[in-house]
């Protein structure tokens, strides 16, 4: 398991942006919003969310549309869409690098499970939304969990683990520990899924408990993925709020 790395607000034109690196994936996310919405997509009582996933090579196809629909329905429950009626919040996720992108074999890439990239995409979207200061009802932690043949579960698996995996699961939990996303692919039994659920919940929880312990400390050395990112967001917000301190 590798810890994620990220940088925030490094793109000038987009309202919010983030680069997220984990397990060989590198994704740049940009958020524009709230902006003017086309009349066709306008919703009278809430904001329209537009999610665009762009692959590193080639143009998007059904695979990207599928990922977009999952991310769209997740963000709809996270963003406070009632706050911005008749506007558009546009989330663009550009994949820069994939770990198994054998550059000369795009066929192989197409057959690999689309779920593998989903946690990184969700995490990038969240960071970009935070960077754009879009009001959210909660934050979330997404993780990829695989179940291998011997029924042992691995969180944030390495490429070898992925090869041996019988089933792949993506779970995202809100900061309160509620399940937001549950996507699974492959063969598994209900017992497997319950263990996967426990594992994902534990990973998400350990993040939020650490946060309570180290409230004022920016340095987070915990091994959960939330901790490292939280530190980054905190740094960014401190930087943004600096002007206020000087006024006092």
């Amino acid at each position: 398991m590798t810890l994620p790395d990220a940088s925030l607000s490094h793109i000038h034109r987009a309202d919010g942006s983030a680069t997220y690196l984990q397990n060989g994936y590198s994704i740049i996310g940009g958020v524009n919003g709230p902006i003017e919405v086309g009349r066709r997509d306008e919703l009278p009582e809430e904001a329209t969310i537009d999610v665009i996933v762009r692959p590193a090579v080639g143009v998007g196809g059904t695979r990207e549309r599928h990922l977009e629909s999952i991310i769209h329905s997740t963000l709809q429950h996270v963003i406070l869409i009632q706050n911005h009626p008749r506007t558009l919040i546009q989330v663009t996720l550009q994949v820069i690098r994939m770990p198994d992108s054998d550059t000369f074999n795009s066929k192989k890439r197409q057959f690999s499970s689309p779920l593998r990239i989903l946690p990184s995409l969700l995490q990038t979207a969240l960071l970009a939304l935070l960077s754009a200061s879009i009001p959210l009802s909660t934050t979330f932690t997404a993780s990829l969990i695989t179940v291998a043949r011997g029924s042992n579960t691995v969180i944030n698996p390495s490429p070898e683990d992925l090869q041996n995996a019988r089933s792949t699961h993506v779970l995202a939990f809100s900061a309160e520990g509620d399940l937001l996303v549950a996507e699974s692919q492959g063969e598994f039994e209900i017992g497997d899924w319950e263990r996967v659920f426990e594992m994902g919940l534990h990973a998400a929880r350990s993040g939020s408990e650490n946060r309570k312990g180290a409230d004022s400390d920016v340095v987070m050395l915990d091994d959960d993925q939330g901790g490292a990112l939280r530190g980054l967001v905190q740094q960014k917000i401190e930087k943004d709020q600096k002007w206020k301190e000087n006024i006092k």
């Binding site: 034109r13 987009a14 996310g29 940009g30 080639g58 546009q90 663009t92 550009q94």
Partner: peptide, 15 residues
């Protein structure tokens, strides 16, 4: 050569 302008660069670019 494929060029596609994405809304990351500017909201004026439509998908």
């Amino acid at each position: 050569i494929t060029t596609e302008l994405s809304p990351i660069a500017s909201p004026a670019f439509e998908v």
